[in-house]
Each structure stands twice: as structure tokens, then as C-alpha cells.
């Protein structure tokens, strides 16, 4: 793992919104073939970190790189390496899931047979077959989440930023997604996974960065974080400084 290429690097990242410091001095790395869990209670800075990495926010200080591209100075290069499942993973209700995926694919420069083949592949991987040709408007949260995840994976990106990818999924669908993510990690992808589900972290994440009040409170493998022993949830609560796990 140590010899694997660093694909995501955050160096002393800071982000202020007016007088509010959303992030302060946040540094971490993620490598190819690794799932890095980004944990923290609400307001800890997870979404802000993800948005900086996905080039939507500019850091107030510090720098971040995705696949070697500075997200502030070379955002287009960073976007080409990224697949993003944002917190608000909405879909166009009047398009079918297939049309929505075609649109996303074309925006990423895919076309023709290649695009159709990838859509079919993701449909099989995420079990979209039953509703891929239906309009998205009436989809359940779980169906929307799976289509949005397929959208993030469409271009076969080397870095994935996933915010709560299993939120709203039933047990079977969540398992399908977790298997898919593990497979992607094995295929060399670098995945940043923001989640509130400790069981998911334990099953999937190779390393974890815990944020609290916009600062890094802990970073390492699960074994390193456990250190003196204890459940991950207890460690999380202690490090994040949160009164409760949300």
C-alpha cells in the first residue's frame, strides 16, 4: 500500500465562510487501491472537504490535488480524474435513468458504443435493469442513489468521492453497492467515502480520517485508531469530540 501512488492529497487545507472556519489545517492523503473513510459528526467539515476536492469550492488556504492536478489551479484536469457522488445526488425527473446516464457520459466525453456498453455494465453492476428505461421522477431514494452512483462511475474515474453512497438503500442494494466499491478498490481506484455508518467503515475502509470542528482529529488504519482497544464508534465519539454519533 505504501508504494501505491498518491491520488488525493490535502495539505493544510483551510476554508472560511465569512467569519466561520469550516476547515482548519486539514491534511491527509489517499492512494490508489485504497478506500479512505471520511468521518465526522454533522458540521465537522466532511462535505466542505469533498466539495473542495471535487473543485466546487476553492480553499481559503492550503492546497489539494487529485491525480496530480491542483483542484484550484487546474480544476478541469482534476474533474477528468474524478467521479463524484455528492451529498445532494439529484436526478432529472423527466429523463429516464438511461438518458440521465447518457447525458452524464457525453459531458465526460463518452459517446456511441463505448458509452452504451458502460451504461449496460453499470446497470448490471448496480442492478438498475428493472428501472433503467423509466423516468426518474417517481424513483425511491435508493433507486436514485444507485443511478447517481452509476453516474459517478460512468467514466471509470481513478478517484471516487462518494458522500453517503448507501444512504436510503435497502439491505440488498446496500450490499450490492458495498461489493461494487470493494471491487473498484481492488481494481486500483482511490475512493474517499463519507459515511455515518460505522459498520460500513469497518467493512470497507482501509484507512479513516476523522474530522471534528473542521480539524483532523485522527487518521490511520482502523487498527491504528483502535490502538488501546475499543469499538470504532467509541473511538469516533472520543476523537471527533461529538456528544453523539449522528
Amino acid at each position: 500500500m505504501k508504494s501505491a501512488r498518491v491520488l488525493v492529497r490535502a495539505e493544510r487545507l483551510a476554508k472560511r465562510f465569512g467569519t466561520f472556519a469550516a476547515l482548519t489545517d486539514v491534511s491527509f492523503e489517499a492512494r490508489e487501491g485504497e478506500i479512505l473513510g471520511v468521518l465526522g459528526p454533522n458540521g465537522a467539515g466532511k462535505t466542505t472537504t469533498m466539495r473542495i476536492l471535487s473543485t466546487l469550492l476553492r480553499p481559503t488556504a492550503g492546497r489539494a490535488e487529485v491525480a496530480g492536478a491542483d483542484v484550484a489551479t487546474s480544476p478541469q484536469d482534476a474533474r477528468r480524474a474524478l467521479g463524484v457522488l455528492p451529498e445532494a445526488a439529484g436526478l432529472y425527473g423527466r429523463l429516464t435513468a438511461r438518458e440521465a446516464l447518457r447525458y452524464a457520459g457525453r459531458l465526460h466525453g463518452l459517446a456511441g458504443e463505448d458509452l452504451e456498453r458502460r451504461i449496460e455494465g453499470l446497470s448490471a453492476l448496480l442492478d438498475l435493469g428493472a428501472f433503467i428505461d423509466r423516468r426518474c421522477e417517481p424513483f425511491s431514494r435508493g433507486m436514485k442513489q444507485r443511478v447517481a452512483l452509476a453516474r459517478a462511475l460512468l467514466r471509470n474515474p481513478i478517484v471516487l468521492l462518494l458522500d453517503e453512497p448507501t444512504a436510503g438503500l435497502d439491505v440488498v442494494a446496500a450490499r450490492t453497492v458495498r461489493r461494487a466499491l470493494a471491487g473498484l478498490r481492488d481494481a486500483g481506484k482511490c475512493i474517499l467515502l463519507s459515511t455515518h455508518l460505522m459498520a460500513e467503515v469497518e467493512r470497507l475502509c482501509d484507512r479513516v480520517v476523522i474530522l471534528g470542528d473542521g480539524r483532523v482529529r485522527g487518521i490511520g488504519t482502523l487498527a491504528e485508531l483502535r490502538g488501546e482497544g475499543g469499538e470504532l464508534e467509541e473511538i469516533f465519539v472520543r476523537l471527533a469530540g461529538a456528544g453523539s454519533v449522528v
Binding site: 466539495r51 471535487s54 473543485t55 466546487l56 478541469q76 474533474r79 477528468r80 474524478l82 463524484v84 457522488l85 455528492p86 451529498e87 445532494a88 445526488a89 439529484g90 436526478l91 432529472y92 425527473g93 452524464a104 459531458l107 465526460h108 466525453g109 447517481a148 453516474r151 459517478a152
Partner: peptide, 14 residues
Amino acid sequence: ERGTLEALLSAPVA
């Protein structure tokens, strides 16, 4: 409103 803007702006499109 639909929550599609973030995904759209994350695409490599000027």
C-alpha cells in the same frame, strides 16, 4: 432545486 447542480459542475465541462 433537484440537487443536480453539484454533479453537473463536477463534470469536466467549462
